[in-house]
Design a protein around this nucleic acid. Sequence first.
RNA 1: GGCCGGGUGGCGAAGUGGCCUAACGCAGAGGUCUGCAAAACCUUCAUUCGUGGGUUCAAAUCCCACCCCGGCCUCCA
Length: 490
Amino acid sequence: MALWLYNSLGRKKEPFVPRQPGQVGIYVCGITAYDYCHIGHARVMVSFDVLVRHLRATGLKVTHVCNFTDIDDKIIRRALQEGVAITDLTTRFIAAFHADMAALGVNRADIEPKATEHLPEMCAMIQTLIDKGLAYESGGDVFYAVDRFPAYGQLSGKHLEELESGARVEVDGRKRNPLDFVLWKGAKPDEPQWSSPWGAGRPGWHIECSAMGVKYLGESFDLHGGGRDLIFPHHENEIAQTEGATGHSWVTCWLHNGFVNVVDDEGRREKMSKSLDNFRTIRDLLTAWRGETIRMFLLNSHYRAPLDFSLDLLDAARAGLDRLYVALRGAQAVLKELPAAGPVDWEHERQERPEGHAVRFREAMEDDLNTPRALAVLFDLARVINRLSTDETTDPEGLRVHVRLLRGLGAILGLCGSAPESHFQFRPEEAGQSEQSGLSDGEVEALIAQRSEARRNRDFQSADRIRKALAEAGIVLEDTKEHTSWRREA
RNA sequence: GGCCGGGUGGCGAAGUGGCCUAACGCAGAGGUCUGCAAAACCUUCAUUCGUGGGUUCAAAUCCCACCCCGGCCUCCA
């Protein structure tokens, strides 16, 4: 078994071989901290979170780095607008990022470097580039001379001549070549600034990822990822900077996920983005859907394919996730206690059940993280579990084994880790629905107790009246022989 | 204009030469179970894969042309 990943550099799937056996370094381009995150950000973070989980589940030791851009034009502008200090603004949105990601079940990266804390590293790299003749000072700024780096364009498949002819790049007299990009921006009055050999100023955007990637993962490492829109110019420039400075190859495999699109009422679709102002923030959606539902929605399509976002699809994802939790809840009723998600013993699974769920799941994941296929395996498992839970002749051990597997495989996708009750009893907070979902858990339980009493007395009229009332409040009941469980429906 | 993705059932989405008369989920239909429901389970739901050619014993999968959707080429995940 081997993991195959689609490498944007070369545009084909390749078997993934860590540079150092058993160890992986991965750098993911994080956010610019000036606003709340939307589904597009969620997709990046969830995709790479799943990749890291998978690498770890297959026995690799992973160092996961995800940076924060905490100084940049947009941040400065936004801080000015809001009349707050830049660090207050970035601190606030970094905290919001952490909260949103926690809700989505995204694990924290091992290292979360901030640009403003790595000025010396960036300056050192810029100086190296100047010394090597790859960068030059001009009018207080420092620029990278793209035509001094022959491999420029290798990642994005762009050729310098074409870029120049197509040029939407604004003319800047200080640049030798219009495509040269800034490494160091000279300070304007009233802007945050750091001292440097080239005068006071601040770093360009691209240099931070080069400097911090090298610092934490080395001059060569395995994986570097982000959204497709970063391929050019951001990642192209990162390569030029880093390989220009070190003189050798930097990242083995570049990974990029597809966009989240928004479809409007006329059926037109476009990329969800900050600049188009057509985004839905994660925290907005979290008022009506569990984070795990959003995760399910994202994982139901392949990470590289374009993905249309809609509320209906979120509902469908919720229904699918319900199915997995129904299976867990049914098993819980039989087993009394739900087995925890232990690590999957791949060797054992391969020998005992070569066609089994675990093997099929892993094969799907190893095919460039085919999460839709991996999810299909989870659904197959849920069916098996449902059958075992309903069949009274079943021995509990077989059921336990399958439940443990569902939770173990689910954990690699970051799913199925909650208690079934907390999934089903999640309460949306959306303002307009407050009346509908006004019943507290305790009130629901009390009404169910009344209904159970009525049913025991075979007073089905009263029982059905209560059930109907609950249904109108968005509560659905499910009777088993000895117990009534309930869930909230959107 | 250059480059990059995508077009598969009512919806979402896998599948990239034979196991595909197309996985899986949602929605729908019938049945079993149930006091009745719900859930579950069983059955059913694309002879067809944007269009037109071609290659092949064999194509959703390869080749050619065309049409449509989205993106990058400027900040963007």
